[in-house]
Each structure stands twice: as C-alpha cells, then as structure tokens.
C-alpha cells in the first residue's frame, strides 16, 4: 500500500467515524427514526477488505449495520443520509431506512435485517456470477452472532459443494446484540467452525486496517482464482451499543477500556504520523474538512430533500407493467 492510498484510507475511515457520529446526533434530534446500528470501532474491517476488492465490480452484501459498507462501495453519502432522514432523495427513496441501504449501480446489494439472511443470498449472487461466467466475486459481511443461524451452515455447505466465488467476512465484535459470544456460542473462534466444510479461513486483528487489507487480498485472490469460498474472521469491537435502543450495560467497563485503546482510526493515524507520512496538523485539517462536508453538504442535502410522495407506495410492491402478468409477451 503506497502512501497516497494510506492517506486516502485514513481519510475514508475518519469520514466513516464522523458520519456515524453525526447519525447518532441526528437520531437524538429525531431526524432519523426506527433502528440505527452504528459502525464506530469497526471501520478497519469494511475499509481493509473493500480496499482489497474491486468495488463497483465485485458484489457486496451485508447486514443492517450497513452505511459504511455502502459508502465505501461508492454510494453517495448524501443519498445515504437522505435515506436515513427518510427522504425521496435517499438511495431507496425513503422506503428502506438505515437497515436497508442499497446501491445496486455500485453493486452494493443491500443491507438486510434478518440476522444471517444474507448468507444464502451471497451464495446465490456467486451462483449468478458463475452462470454468467464473470470474474467478479461476492463479498458478504456479517457479524459473529449470525453464525448461529442455520443459514450459515446451509450456505457454507452449498458454497463449497458448488465451488461458488464468495468471500464470507465475519466481523466478530464479540457480542450478539447484548449477549457475549462465549455465552451464546460453543466455539468462540469462528474461523474454526468453517473447517467442517473444508473451506479455508483466517483470523486477523480487525482493528488494523493494513493487516485486514493483507489478509483480504489473499482471501480475494483465492476466491477470484476459482478455488471456491473463503472465510475471513476479523476480531473487532463496536464502540457503541448494538443499536440506539441499546443501553450497552452488559459490557464490562474494563473490556471497553482495553478495546477503546485499539481504535482503528487512531491507531492508523498514529502509525502514519510515526512514519512521517502525515503530521498531527494534517490530521486535524482532514478532520475539519470532513466535519464541514458532513454539516454543510450531507446534512443540508438530507434536510432540504423532499418527503417521498404517496404514489411511491404502490410503485414497488410488484414490478410495474410486467407483460407476462397478463400472459402477453415482451
């Protein structure tokens, strides 16, 4: 990774942090409704993996903690924020919300709110790639707790059986909503669980974006070269509760302190300062620019966008004017 790439990645991760923090404030201001699951603490996971992928070409799918993945794939942050504000200029016209961000033109295939739901969808996207003889891969990001769904096992089995080009990325943040992993899961190391399907796997520190990038590069190379699925476990931690309605009372303070010192943005910043690639001043300027952009462009855009029209309600329940519905032909 050259210096320019590192600086850009740092900026993107800092942007993701500030974007999510601003979402928190907007939620408190009641501009964002429903459930809101934020990403601070886990930025190195999405950025490290997707930096190694070919965004816009490879397909990406994830869970309800999806804003940052969408933005890294190329979805306009203004359209994401407008979606959170439930406006018509939102990426899903205000019909999706925080848990359902989509950016299909960037091959971001969406955020899904049933834990473990995207496992088979990702295998299916990979099946579609295989049938179209493309060289894309599908990357599926899910949390550790999703691995206790049946879809985890069903999908790994089929992905291996049919040699599908899918990379499963497990963002292991140690908690399934409010239950610590060792209280819900017999095998705590998630990468070990896929060995029963003969799928190669790796476990790395998910707070270090460079380590994630390296591991993801290898994983993606494996999948793209036609060798079938791969499972990458990233050890991470979310700095906030599961969602905004989570009091976060279940985590020991000491644990939070320890992980707080492994802040992926701060760690990467300090490393780049140490190597002389940036200065403290550069970082401050970068931060100010980002804060300004979020406030002046993104929040303003979302605020000033229109409410969706009632006509949207009927428009997307079923596909409009499909000739085969009436037995006609195209």
């Amino acid at each position: 990774m050259n210096s320019d790439v590192k600086k850009r990645l740092l900026r993107e991760m800092l942007f993701a942090r500030r974007f999510e923090e601003r979402c928190y404030e907007a939620y408190v201001e009641r501009k964002i409704g429903g459930f809101l699951h934020l990403y601070p603490g886990e930025e190195a996971c999405a950025h490290g993996v997707l930096e190694a992928a070919n965004c816009g070409h490879d397909y990406v799918i994830t869970s309800y903690r999806d804003h940052v993945h969408a933005i890294k794939c190329g979805v306009d942050p203004k359209a994401v924020m407008a979606e959170l504000f439930a406006k018509e200029a939102g990426c899903c016209k205000g019909l999706g919300g925080s848990m359902h961000i989509f950016g299909v033109e960037h091959r971001f295939m969406g955020g899904y709110a049933l834990v473990g739901g995207p496992f088979p969808l990702a295998a299916g996207i990979a099946k579609g790639i295989q049938m179209k003889k493309g060289n894309e891969i599908c990357i599926c990001f899910l949390g550790d707790a999703a691995n206790n769904q049946g879809t985890f096992h069903e999908s790994l089995n089929m992905a291996k059986l049919w040699n599908l080009p899918v990379l499963y990325v497990c963002e292991n943040n140690l908690y399934g909503i409010g239950t610590r992993i060792d209280r819900s899961t017999a095998v705590v190391d998630q990468y070990k669980r896929v060995s029963s399907y003969n799928i190669p796997s790796n476990q790395v520190n998910g707070q270090d974006v460079e380590l994630v990038y390296e591991a993801a590069t290898q994983a993606i190379e494996h999948v793209r070269s036609g060798k079938g699925p791969y499972f990458l476990e990233l050890m991470t931690y979310r700095f906030r509760g599961h969602s905004m309605s989570d009091s976060n009372a279940y985590r020991p303070k000491n644990e939070e302190r320890v992980w707080g010192k492994r802040d992926p943005v701060i760690m990467f910043r300090d490393r780049l300062i140490e190597t002389g690639e940036i200065t403290q001043e550069d970082f401050k300027n970068m931060d100010n620019e980002i804060l300004e952009e979020i406030e002046q462009e993104i929040i303003r855009f979302a605020d000033e966008s229109q409410e969706p029209s009632m006509e949207l309600l009927d428009k997307y329940v079923l596909v409009e004017n499909d000739p085969y519905v009436t037995g006609g032909s195209r």
């Binding site: 088979p120 969808l121 996207i125 179209k132």
Partner: peptide
C-alpha cells in the same frame, strides 16, 4: 431456506 435464499440471490443478477 438455504437453497431458496441462494435462488433469490442469483435472481438479483
């Protein structure tokens, strides 16, 4: 559930 989901994912393409 797995293979139905797989079919749905493929249909996205």
């Amino acid at each position: 559930n797995g293979f139905t989901g797989l079919g749905i994912g493929a249909s996205f393409l």
